[in-house]
Amino acid sequence: MNKKVNQEVISFSANKKWLAIPEATRRELERNVWCGNCLDVVQIVNYVVKDSPHGIVLEGNCKNCEKNVARVID
Rank of each mutant, 00 (worst) to 15 (best):
A24H: 03
D40Q: 06
W34P: 02
G36P: 02
I56Q: 03
N32K: 05
E23F: 05
I21R: 06
V69W: 01
F12L: 15
C38S: 08
L29F: 09
H54L: 15
C38D: 15
A20L: 02
R71M: 08
K17T: 12
R31S: 13
S52Q: 08
N68L: 13
S11Y: 04
V9K: 09
Y47C: 02
K50N: 13
Y47G: 02
L19G: 02
V72Y: 11
E23M: 02
E23S: 04
E59T: 07
P53H: 08
V41L: 08
K17H: 08
I56W: 01
N2L: 14
I73M: 10
I21N: 04
S13R: 11
L58H: 06
R27N: 04
Q7K: 11
C35D: 13
V57E: 14
Q7W: 11
G36V: 03
I10C: 05
S13E: 13
Q7R: 10
R26C: 05
W34Y: 12
V49T: 10
S52C: 10
L58W: 05
A20I: 00
P22V: 01
I21Y: 07
R26Q: 14
F12N: 15
V49Q: 04
N46C: 11
S52W: 10
I73A: 13
K3V: 15
V48H: 08
N61A: 12
N15A: 01
S11E: 08
E8K: 12
W18H: 04
F12Q: 15
V9S: 00
W18K: 02
K67V: 12
E30S: 03
V48D: 01
N46H: 15
C62Q: 02
I10Q: 11
R71D: 04
M1S: 10
A24K: 08
G60A: 06
V33Q: 01
P53V: 07
N32R: 01
R26M: 07
N2F: 11
D74A: 11
S52M: 05
K4W: 10
T25N: 09
D51P: 01
Q7E: 13
V9R: 05
K17L: 11
V42G: 02
E28F: 12
N37K: 14
R71F: 00
C38H: 04
F12I: 14
K16Q: 05
V41G: 00
N37D: 14
L39T: 10
I56G: 04
H54C: 12
G60D: 03
G55D: 13
I21M: 05
N68Q: 12
I44Q: 06
N15I: 07
A70I: 03
V41C: 05
C38V: 07
I56H: 01
D51T: 11
I73P: 07
C65K: 04
V45H: 03
K16T: 01
D40T: 02
K17I: 12
T25K: 15
N6H: 06
I73G: 13
E30K: 09
E8R: 14
A24G: 01
A14C: 07
K63R: 08
V5Q: 13
V69S: 01
D40H: 00
M1W: 00
K50I: 11
N32M: 00
L58A: 06
G36K: 13
I21T: 02
E8W: 07
V9Q: 04
C62A: 07
V49S: 06
R26D: 06
K50L: 15
